[in-house]
């Protein structure tokens, strides 16, 4: 702490005094050299990072026979064909997978955002007996790894007769504890004056939540919605075990069957990989900032 205040003060002085200009020249040069090196190194790595995706894209745009010859043939083939995409669209499985993924992701997102924001509102604004116990239980829940619960979850859904329904994928993913805490924290930071005014006007809690609090929560709702949507869309382990009907398979489960069933049709395989990723690429392009904020703000990791 001492060094921090020291340096800022000195900075304040030197910024006002042009005398400090001279020793700066040398660091300016080294800074420029450093920044150029940084740009070069980083760009090399970024290109390296893009290569696998671009290679998959390129493979998906060649014929299966060219793709079977291997990487040199794929890279030197200048022709572009959409044959694999046409094959996949005509076979039709991909449409079912899209539909399943879209329905499960959308419904889970709506339920999670609604229930987590309501719960977050209760924990932030209302004092009630048992609140501390709930709080403690929820904090413990952050640590519970859902993936490890896949076997008992499967059995419960089996007992409830929910296997091979969308609900089997939706229900277990609704209680996202992190979302609850993100909402609570956000509400904690909102000024209470508007709510008090509404309450004096006779509004009940539900109306305050719906008409005062939620309209102020756009950014956090958007961030939580996107993070939830992407998480559910990409979940493999849960739908893998609770959905065995090919017509209900989500994108990840469907893609997991592709490797075996397409054999050596490498262009088709890569085309399905690209199609499975496409909606998320589009989502990223539109909501880049929200996604990054959501991920960085919550520390949600698969």
């Amino acid at each position: 702490m001492a060094t921090t205040t020291g340096t800022t003060r000195r900075n304040g002085v030197s910024a006002a005094a042009p005398a400090a200009q001279e020793p700066r020249e040398k660091t300016k040069d080294s800074t420029r050299a450093f920044n150029v090196t940084a740009a070069v190194v980083l760009t090399v790595f970024a290109v390296l990072w893009l290569l696998p995706s671009l290679f998959a894209l390129k493979t998906s745009l060649t014929t299966n026979s060219t793709a079977a010859l291997g990487a040199p043939a794929i890279l030197s083939d200048l022709q572009i064909t959409f044959g694999s995409y046409l094959t996949l669209f005509q076979a039709g499985d991909i449409w079912n997978w899209y539909l399943s993924s879209f329905i499960t992701s959308a419904v889970t997102t709506v339920l999670t955002v609604l229930f987590a924001s309501m719960g977050g509102y209760a924990l932030s604004r209302l004092r009630f007996p048992g609140r501390n116990l709930v709080f403690l239980l929820m904090i413990l829940g952050i640590m519970v790894p859902a993936q490890v619960l896949v076997v008992p979850t499967f059995q419960m859904l089996d007992a409830a007769g929910l296997l091979n329904t969308y609900w089997a994928v939706i229900f277990p993913q609704v209680p996202a504890v992190i979302a609850l805490f993100v909402f609570k924290q956000f509400f904690d930071g909102l000024p209470r004056e508007l709510e008090e005014a509404a309450r004096i006007d006779g509004a009940g809690y539900w109306r305050i939540y719906r008409q005062v609090v939620m309209p102020l929560s756009g950014p956090v709702v958007a961030a939580m919605a996107i993070v939830t949507f992407v998480g559910v869309w990409n979940n493999l382990i849960l739908p893998l075990f609770v959905l065995s009907n090919p017509e209900l398979m989500t994108i990840p489960v469907g893609l997991a069957t592709v490797q075996g069933s397409f054999g050596q049709m490498f262009a088709d395989i890569q085309a399905s990989a690209v199609l499975g990723a496409l909606p998320l690429v589009v989502l990223y392009m539109i909501f880049q900032r929200r996604i990054i904020e959501g991920v960085a703000g919550t520390g949600i990791k698969g």
């Binding site: 209760a122 419960m156 504890v177 809690y205 939540y209």
Partner: peptide
């Protein structure tokens, strides 16, 4: 109100986190 607001989340939380654990 507190319990009503918490109820939907708590229901899913109990059913799909506490019970499986």
């Amino acid at each position: 109100a507190g319990w009503l607001f918490l109820a939907p989340f708590a229901f899913f939380y109990a059913l799909f986190l506490i019970v499986p654990t």
